[in-house]
Nucleic acid binder design. Structure first.
Lengths: 230, 230
DNA sequence: CGTTGTGAACAGGTTCACAGCA
DNA sequence: TGCTGTGAACCTGTTCACAACG
């Protein structure tokens, strides 16, 4: 649970707000002005009760018997998410993935501004992407301070991640989105969201194995790749 | 909860198995042969009770008073995750992100084999990445069938995602890792894991807003500037 | 002894079902 | 009438604390 102002919002709710916001923006684009919890929930991939309960943590935005005004609700969620103020973003680690993330075009529309690209590899330093030049990580502290960076996307190799993260935190950054597959040890007040592509694939592999185990069992009784039983 | 063989494993547990596996591989690399639940938990970023409970769903792997043998445990988890058999992988949508994902080098080591790159853009078709040539999505069904693809990474623009996903499912693929920021409407037996970079940033923004609201409130009631430590 | 494996207590999140209201 | 907002019931997952045991 996360406190904001005098309200408390469950972490699970916060993690769904971006879905609602996206669905609302799609509706706006399509010229829809009013929607209902069930219609919006379907677009967001959740249940309608879930959606209403989530919104109830932020306030009361709908009209009973009618539904929600798309534009109003979108801006309310947007405000709750803190997208009113601009967040200045740096990408540290500009390999394949960091480069792809730099070229992502959706930052500005969502209140983020990419202001620095940083890497340790001399071959990468000096390259340009997204209108920025990649700068050397020796100057990391200087750059983060000068550009007023408040959020960092960390896309370094795993071996470098912990050390770099510590330097970043030392600069006062408290929100990090990490793509490095390591559990970062950082002070409690630092928020780290972690995206791990290989891990996601492994989770899918587990589901595949479960499916095959079941089919194997029901179809012909032979063992499919399964858990080492107890 | 997910059934595999005669065992039932909570989804939350499955989502942590990759962390444990990674930590174990790091230990192996460092030549460590034995570890304890608390040491392994620390490396994985979870509590030790959590780790032991998670492992208990898969079986009993440790020695009381001693701990776990790193290699044995790693291979047990690996088997549970279905990484024994090879999973044939296609990337659909080879833009910035798809390209970066194609160049990721860790697939083979984790039991995945990238066997096709597919895109709808004629400018992209024909390019090479990771030893493969990008092929046109007109031939998607043909390619997935011929290569025995069982898992797909979907990295198309949002507008195309739903339609492409339906074609993929039609080919018998039941595990999809999507990077497109839309809630895919697919049959219940299809497992979709979704990674949304913009969404993750928005969640971080919420945390930043919460932090500022608190500081602003306690400091002087006005909105506080940047997060200079607490 | 020291560490695992696990029942039992707890916490958090989801779903239900309906009262409240335009 | 129909949809929102929400207390209460339910369910899932986490943490505690200790018995089991090499």
């Amino acid at each position: 649970m996360i406190e904001i102002g005098e309200v408390t919002v469950p972490a699970a709710t916060v993690s769904r707000l971006p879905y609602y916001l996206r669905a609302l923006r799609d509706l706006l684009r399509d010229g829809v002005t009013t929607t209902s919890s069930s219609a919006l929930a379907e677009r967001s991939g959740v249940g309608s009760a879930q959606l209403r309960k989530d919104l109830s943590y932020l306030g009361s935005f709908g009209t009973r018997g009618v539904g929600y005004e798309v534009e109003t609700l979108a801006s309310s969620i947007s405000t709750a998410l803190g997208l009113g103020s601009e967040h200045r973003l740096a990408i540290v680690g500009v390999g394949n993935l960091g480069n792809a993330l730099a070229n992502y075009s959706g930052y500005a529309a969502r209140g983020f501004r990419l202001v620095a690209l940083i890497d340790a590899d001399p071959d990468v330093v000096g390259r340009r992407a997204a209108g920025l030049e990649v700068e050397h990580s020796d100057r990391l502290e200087e750059i983060l301070a000068a550009r007023g960076v408040s959020m960092v996307i960390l896309a370094t190799p795993g071996a470098a991640a912990q050390a770099v993260a510590e330097r970043i935190v030392e600069c006062g950054v408290r929100e990090i989105l990490s793509f490095s597959p390591v559990a970062l040890q950082l002070p409690d007040d630092v928020v780290v969201r972690s995206v791990d592509v290989a891990g996601e694939l492994q989770i899918l592999a587990f589901h595949a194995a479960a499916r095959h185990a079941q089919e194997g069992a029901t179809v012909d009784g032979r063992t499919a790749p399964a858990a080492t039983a107890r």
